[in-house]
């Protein structure tokens, strides 16, 4: 029992603005999600790719001084996916001049940042959202926690966007944050702070690419969560969507490459726009959109297709969310 029970007292404090409700919903979601040990491990794991890419940035910035470092950088980057798009920049085996370095720097940095977002972080994003998103709404429906929310001055929009912000926080932690850290590290490793003048757009591109990643994925994951009372079904649907999409895409690409009698399965980023085939894989659709944000995709039709698909998926998910969140109240 309390040491000094004051009984009931009226509350006469000052309320905070109503916009803080959204932050309350999001921050409580984050706090609850952090109870997952697997999530904490994944977030730690998400920082490790920074080490690899910081070595790449270090080698690139030091390559001006020593041709041996330039060769090491070429070998390192040559082993990364879609490195063929850097063929023009990396073609020379001798170290470029400082003018050539300055010229190729934005492209190389963009490529490294995109590769970070597109490969390790995108796969980690898939896992993190698969842990965070499924219980966000389904658990509220199962435990009837929606009564706690909606008996208070909360609108459906605040509820949905509060949950969205929970996912956005974690996805930002593994996409935007590492990429921005890497950009900051690259600036510090460069010979002069003047590089900011030529690469100032990269932080903005990182943020836009993160938004392109967060909005559709978070909405789709939340829609799955809203469709069931069992979060494991929502998690299953989430992972199934990615796996089935990727397998379908791989099979279609394999058929195409067989038709073209090409032996290589390494598809360059500029070749990602494989027409309608690309639309079968959420991973490829997001990759195309992100590559466009970083200025690597020239095929307009595949970019339009990707953005239209992402827009449609987001709109459909929002429609499901509004209907499902309202449903328990209408009974």
């Amino acid at each position: 029992m309390p040491l000094h029970n004051v009984g009931y007292r009226a509350w006469q404090g000052t309320s905070v603005p109503s916009a803080t409700r959204l932050i309350t919903i999001a921050s409580t979601g984050v706090r609850r999600a952090f109870h997952s040990r697997w999530l904490r491990r994944l977030l730690f794991l998400a920082l490790l790719p920074i080490l690899f890419f910081s070595i790449a940035f270090f080698l690139f910035e030091q390559a001006q001084r020593d041709p041996a470092i330039w060769r090491a950088f070429r070998e390192l980057v040559g082993g990364l996916p879609n490195a063929s798009i850097l063929q023009q920049s990396l073609g020379s085996s001798s170290a470029p001049t400082s003018e050539q370095f300055a010229e190729m720097r934005p492209t190389i940095w963009s490529y490294l940042l995109l590769t970070l977002l597109r490969y390790p972080q995108a796969i980690l994003m898939l896992l993190v959202v698969g842990i965070v998103a499924p219980p966000l709404i389904s658990q509220d429906l199962r435990t009837r926690a929606y009564l706690i929310y909606f008996s208070r001055p909360i609108t459906r929009t605040e509820y949905i966007f509060g949950k969205l912000c929970t996912i956005a926080f974690f996805v930002s932690m593994i996409s935007a944050l590492p990429a921005l850290l890497l950009y900051g590290l690259a600036v510090m490793l460069s010979p002069s702070l003047d590089v900011v003048l030529t690469t100032w757009d990269l932080p903005l591109r990182i943020l836009v690419a993160s938004v392109v990643l967060i909005v559709p994925t978070a909405l789709v994951a939340l829609a799955f969560s809203a469709l069931t009372l069992e979060s494991r079904y929502a998690a299953f649907a989430w992972f199934a969507m990615w796996i089935v999409g990727h397998v379908t895409y791989s099979v279609l690409v394999a058929f195409q490459t067989m038709d073209l009698r090409r032996g290589s399965r390494d598809i360059a980023i500029e070749q990602l726009g494989l027409g309608w085939r690309m639309l079968t894989s959420p991973y490829q659709v997001l990759g195309t959109a992100q590559a466009f944000v970083f200025g690597f995709v020239q095929d307009t039709s595949s970019v339009i297709g990707a953005f239209v698909l992402l827009g449609l998926a987001s709109a459909a998910s929002l429609w499901i969310l509004y209907r499902r969140v309202n449903a328990p109240m209408s009974q």
Partner: peptide, 25 residues
């Protein structure tokens, strides 16, 4: 009437959460 709660929150956190939804700092 229904049993409703937010899993993983303690009792005091649950009440604090309800208060914050009603705009208490």
């Amino acid at each position: 009437e229904d049993d409703c709660y937010l899993p993983q929150l303690s009792g005091v956190e649950s009440v604090q959460f309800a208060a914050r939804l009603n705009c208490l700092p």
